[in-house]
Amino acid sequence: MPVHVSVENQLPEDLYRAMGMFIADHPQWDQYRLVQAAIAGFLFQQGCKERSVVRHYLGGLFRRQTADLSTEQPWR
């Protein structure tokens, strides 16, 4: 099981509102996934090649809801 660390941060109000609007329009995202994807994306774009960072970066881009996976038909 991966280790998680809680982080407290202050955001500009307009950024916080934009994050809330994005999450409201994309219910498969939550604040935790969004922040993890943003941090991993920033680190990856800055040249970080650690496997765990790349995994989080790609996972943030391509992860689907559990419900979507349960109703999806297998590829043949």
Rank of each mutant, 00 (worst) to 15 (best):
A38M: 08
G60W: 02
L15H: 07
Q65H: 12
L61H: 05
M21C: 03
S70R: 15
P74Y: 09
D30N: 15
Q36W: 01
W29K: 00
I23N: 00
A67Q: 05
F22C: 13
L34K: 05
M21D: 15
V7R: 09
H26S: 15
R64P: 02
M21Y: 06
P74F: 09
G59P: 09
I23C: 02
E72P: 03
R51A: 05
R64G: 03
V53N: 00
L69W: 13
E8W: 10
V5T: 14
A37Y: 05
R51M: 10
H26G: 09
H56D: 14
L15N: 08
D68P: 01
F62I: 08
V3N: 14
V35S: 03
L58E: 03
G20I: 03
Q10W: 11
F22V: 12
S70M: 14
Q45E: 05
M19H: 06
H26P: 04
G60N: 01
P12W: 06
D25K: 04
F44Q: 07
V54H: 00
V53W: 00
H26R: 13
A37T: 14
V3H: 06
V5G: 12
D68V: 06
N9S: 06
V5N: 12
S70A: 12
Q65D: 09
N9C: 14
G59F: 04
Q46L: 14
N9E: 10
Q10M: 10
K49S: 13
L69M: 08
R63Y: 12
V5W: 03
E8P: 00
L43V: 06
R33M: 10
Q65M: 05
S6Y: 06
I23G: 02
M21P: 09
V7A: 02
T66D: 06
V54T: 10
Q46Y: 07
D25G: 13
Y57N: 00
C48K: 08
W29L: 03
Y57H: 00
R17P: 08
G60K: 07
Y32Q: 03
F44L: 15
F42A: 14
